[in-house]
Design a protein around this nucleic acid. Structure first.
Lengths: 264, 264
DNA sequence: CAGTGGTCTAGACCACTCG
DNA sequence: GAGTGGTCTAGACCACTGT
């Protein structure tokens, strides 16, 4: 309600509602107690202007419209911890850490797997250091929790390595895909993880049912043999409102020179 | 131009322009060769409808308006690799990897530092396992490159640990803040890194000059002593269009059981 | 069926940039 | 000064949800 120095009306409306949410007046999951029409009357502006303000908040990921005609609702946050290192450690270092799809026994986990032979996208080809025209085996997984799509997990393998292996089988690989690679004579020795964030593409919005104002994290994983040959590249698309990625580091790991710094 | 099955006009407009960009018709950095008015005539709709479509693309981070009357422009991507592990390794494992503010000698790097004594936000208090009411020393850094704000780096230290140290000095600490902690008798032994993504708050938009459609990554770093006492917590806010975070892992690091898995 | 948000029109005036 | 995007109005009709 408090108007500041000559900012557009729609921003003021957004700021007021944002403040109310931050203050706790409208708790997560609750409905915003005013309709567009009410707000238009209250601020004495047109509905279009109110809408512009509300749309801004939607694009911040702060509120959303769950279903047509049910009003604007404050988004609640419930993130799952993703722990790339969890798989190759005997037990968790930090007690508070979760492991994916393990401590959510009450929820119905599921995944859809499809296998294709494809020409890799340029970035994948570069990571795998493939010659132009070289093909890859792509294992696409869409994972769900309670029938809600949760993340996308696309693993690319050089065709030469994967062609006659169990990687071509579009069913869950209980052993882990690294075991299959090992059977083929490729032992994974080290890995590179990268994470970036952007807004989702329309395809991702479709596939993951991402609503407006939610970014995605792109978490990439490249696996190498001891002589630094890349043998796999995995691209994870993680809706930002559902995931946290966590890593651990220890001073006495090899290659450390004793310093453990916060820089950057 | 190709209309699909009964989707709103503004989405069609957005889809057409998105396709043209993806196809390479409008390369990164170039201007979209149509004004709002032209598009309105071309699609035979009102300017408001065209605007709705363009706004959608802006909120995807695909296009933006550099200055008031200069038209819509395709965003170009130029990301910097952030490598938390770089500081405690003698030399980079992977040749392709960068190190922050080191290989950009042609650019003017800068940072503004401020030190405050504050009550920590709840999440920081929890990470540092502080009792209610316990204070922290907060070192706020805003880093710039070519006078463009680049990221925010806020480090919290328990007041009891930092109070009489050089951490209170709001100037660059050449040695590294860990060295200061060591002088105080706290040797950092291991660390926890977490990364998540969301849309920026208005304060972050202001401080980092983030434009619409750009998410931020929140990269947190918590440092512990050998007996698992948390002695520092750093919160980095990284605009999604500028940063990639990278980690490396090796099979023969301690705690590894020989498996190195891709499972998200 | 009333209420709510989703889409759209046909205008208007303003602020800023560029030639 | 012409062109461009930024803000805003006062309507309209539609699609869907809930009671």
């Amino acid at each position: 309600m408090t108007r500041q120095t000559s900012s557009p009306v729609y921003r003021q409306i957004a700021a007021d509602i944002r403040a109310a949410i931050t203050r706790g007046d409208y708790p997560p999951g609750s409905r915003i107690p005013h309709t567009e029409l009410e707000l238009a009357q209250r601020y004495n502006v047109s509905r279009a202007t109110v809408r512009q303000g509300l749309t801004a908040l939607v694009n911040e990921g702060l509120i959303y419209v769950p279903a047509r005609s049910s009003g604007y609702q404050v988004r609640s946050i419930n993130k799952m911890v993703l722990r790339p290192q969890a798989e190759w450690r005997e037990q968790p270092e930090t007690p508070a850490m979760d492991r994916f799809m393990t401590d959510h026994a009450d929820r119905k986990a599921d995944q859809a797997i499809a296998v294709e032979i494809v020409a890799p996208p340029p970035d994948v080809a570069e990571q795998l250091r493939l010659a132009p025209g070289e093909l890859t085996v792509l294992r696409r997984r869409t994972r769900s929790l309670d029938d809600q799509p949760f993340n996308i997990n696309d693993s690319y393998f050089p065709y030469a390595i994967a062609k006659d292996s169990a990687l071509m089988d579009p069913s869950d690989i209980a052993l882990g895909t690294s075991e299959i690679l090992l059977e083929q004579g490729f032992r994974m020795d080290h890995a590179l993880d990268t994470i970036e964030a952007r807004m989702p593409t329309p395809e991702e919005v479709e596939r993951l049912k991402i609503s407006a104002g939610i970014p995605v994290m792109i978490y990439r994983f490249t696996g190498f043999t001891a002589d630094d040959q890349p043998i796999r590249h995995t691209v994870n698309v993680l809706p930002g409102n559902l995931h946290i990625v966590a890593f651990e580091r220890k001073r006495n790991w090899p290659n450390g020179d004793g310093k453990l710094e916060d820089e950057a």
